[in-house]
Design a protein around this nucleic acid. Structure first.
Lengths: 361, 361
DNA sequence: GCGGGAGCTGTAAACGTTTTCAGCGTGGAC
DNA sequence: GTCCACGCTGAAAACGTTTACAGCTCCCGC
């Protein structure tokens, strides 16, 4: 662990000033002979520039942080992977912050940006950007991209999903299969996705001409265990339901566990739809029809937005919305083979549904 | 994005020198009055120390990198999560490098350490540490912890799994269930785990007094698709097999797909065991009996080794070995309910198996 | 009254870069 | 021969910290 060579060591060895060395190493125009001497010395010494010193001088760390609530969540895994790929290609390093979904912790991360250890941040706050974040976001000293909803008019780059359309898609699909008593297993209404999905569920019922029945809705959180518990409660209360709209794949997996336990056939007795289209959906048995909210795509989009802004800080704030799709699998009677075709179809029909305000042919 | 206040700004405002300011901020003994003035000025200005400058001066970045081959792999997800938690508690930030399993890329990362943008590295090379890494590892300017096997005698902290015992455990379990024609679906023999599992499979057969039959072994890679393909090939060649030992959960999932497709009952006709005990194992249907190689624990151990070494660089190289266990689930006839009990049991029996050299009662 | 220690504070160097600016030699135009 | 432009190099400042060291003030003891 001995101290490595610096630009000064090279300068001495080559009999030049550190300025010349720096110029050569940065490829600035220099006399042929000088270049050779510097290169030779650098090679012999095995020189590698110190990125900390460089960052200090350039005010660029070439690092970007991604703050997420839980790395264990497959949804984030997909995002991390894409973000990492985009950043790497652009010469940036990726830093991971796990906030455990704690808004306080998220604010800490935002505050921490002032230490300037990164050039930018991608943040995906579980409960959306609330009061507590908004000031921290707008006063951050480095660009921030938010994945998820932000209050109207916040001047920040944003990547949105569209769980509303996603839910409409799924509900339309279930309705098309003849299901009429569709239950909802939702996450906490205090979270952005939870609220959006609850609203979309009601909207869909209305569009489809079905009555809203409070007893068909159960709220837990987005985990498998709570999903199972919620499913049990809901099935006890409304044994006659014929479909379950679940606000996440994990919830849906919990529901599948319970349905299997109770001997109900899926999709025969009850059709099940999940959300997020994570890897788990295709692994489950029966494989799970799931609303794809485009997490991977959202990761890519977020990374790109951030890189763009780093290149040009004067860009106006932009909003990218990623369109949802429906991956139809066995839990609603489709098969994996037809998934792609069905996805396109479903997407089209969703547009129809949304645009026509429910007046489907 | 205006420039933030520095120690100099504070000094001016408080009418003191930057040295005094620095001392106060670092809690060195200072006159009460000075402390107040500095604190006041710092508060008013909303000062936050610049971590890059601090790193340059202190030669400590408080960052640690984790190099893995693919974030999508659930095995690494577990590790990342634990590593992140340990590091965060110790005040370190986590940097993620995805190497796509490319040894060249891995060496790049190791080389990159000389840039000194991190204080240490945890690396988990897919193919083990080979010739190409070893020099880079030992000449790295910062501490490195390797997760996985390294050549005998390499002076580096290491966390090992023990897939040999893991395979023995699983094979013993299958044998205990009366299975005698046990196939192996392995990953590439060129990878460290692939080679280890192939060897352990043979060893287990010998210990159990079963013949080694080459036609019962199929090699692919560790993915689900390839796993399915390998399973198809194997089943075509050896339709009479009654159990499948799979070198990863993903392979096992592929195998389950094929078995289902061919209408073979699991575990009735064929029992299936996976490896890694990822979340997927419990999601699959039938849920998958799987060898737990303690990935989460290995993550924690690696992080701790690294932190220890950062505290005291003169420690002798250490090796931590994490013991495997067997999570028995439905794919071999167990049920999720019994998983924990069975795990302890299986662990005990494995020791017996390994120690007694196959002379089981 | 003076020497000297205790207790603070300020000056300046250092960490390893990049970049501005001035200096220097060369060669061409006049 | 003078002047200037040009091409190159080196000195030095800057980025924002930490810290060794010297200097100051105060007070005490003699």
């Amino acid at each position: 662990m001995t101290e490595g060579p610096t630009i000064t060591t090279i300068a001495q060895r080559a009999g030049l000033s550190i300025a010349s060395v720096s110029r050569v190493l940065n490829g600035l125009p220099t006399r042929e002979d000088t270049v050779r001497r510097v290169m030779r010395a650098a090679d012999e010494l095995g020189y590698v520039p110190n990125s900390v010193a460089r960052s200090l001088r350039n005010r660029r760390t070439h690092q970007i942080a991604f703050a997420l609530s839980d790395i264990g969540n497959p949804v984030y895994v997909a995002m991390v992977r894409e973000i990492q790929a985009v950043l790497k290609a652009a010469g940036y390093r990726l830093l991971l912050h796990s906030t455990e979904g704690d808004p306080e912790d998220e604010v800490c991360v935002l505050r921490g940006l002032r230490e300037r250890y990164v050039d930018g941040l991608i943040i995906s706050p579980l409960r959306g950007v609330g009061e507590e974040h908004i000031e921290a976001v707008t006063t951050a000293r480095v660009p921030v991209v938010v994945v998820g909803p932000v209050p109207e008019g916040t001047p920040v780059d944003t990547v949105r999903g569209d769980s509303r359309t996603g839910v409409l898609l799924a509900m339309d699909h279930l309705h098309g299969l003849g299901r009429r008593r569709i239950g909802l297993l939702n996450g906490p209404l205090g979270t952005a996705p939870g609220a959006a999905r609850a609203a979309a569920y009601r909207e869909a019922l209305e569009l489809l001409g079905l009555p809203y029945d409070e007893s068909l809705v159960e709220v837990g959180d987005f985990t498998r265990d709570r999903g199972a518990r919620a499913a049990r409660a809901l099935l006890a209360r409304a044994p006659g339901l014929d479909a379950l709209m679940c606000a996440s794949d994990l919830i849906a997996l919990g529901a599948l566990d319970v349905l299997r336990e109770q001997g109900r056939d899926v999709p025969g007795d009850v059709a099940v739809v999940g959300m997020d289209d994570t890897e788990l959906a295709s692994v489950a048995w029966p494989s799970l029809t799931s609303v794809s909210l485009g997490w991977a795509e959202r990761g890519r989009a977020a990374a790109r937005l951030l890189l763009d802004r780093l290149r040009d800080g004067s860009l106006p704030p932009r909003v990218v919305t990623v369109e949802p799709g429906l991956m139809v699998r066995c839990s609603t009677g489709g098969g994996p083979r037809t998934a792609f075709a069905t996805r396109a179809l479903a997407r089209a029909s969703a547009r129809a549904l949304a645009l026509a305000g429910g007046d489907r042919p």
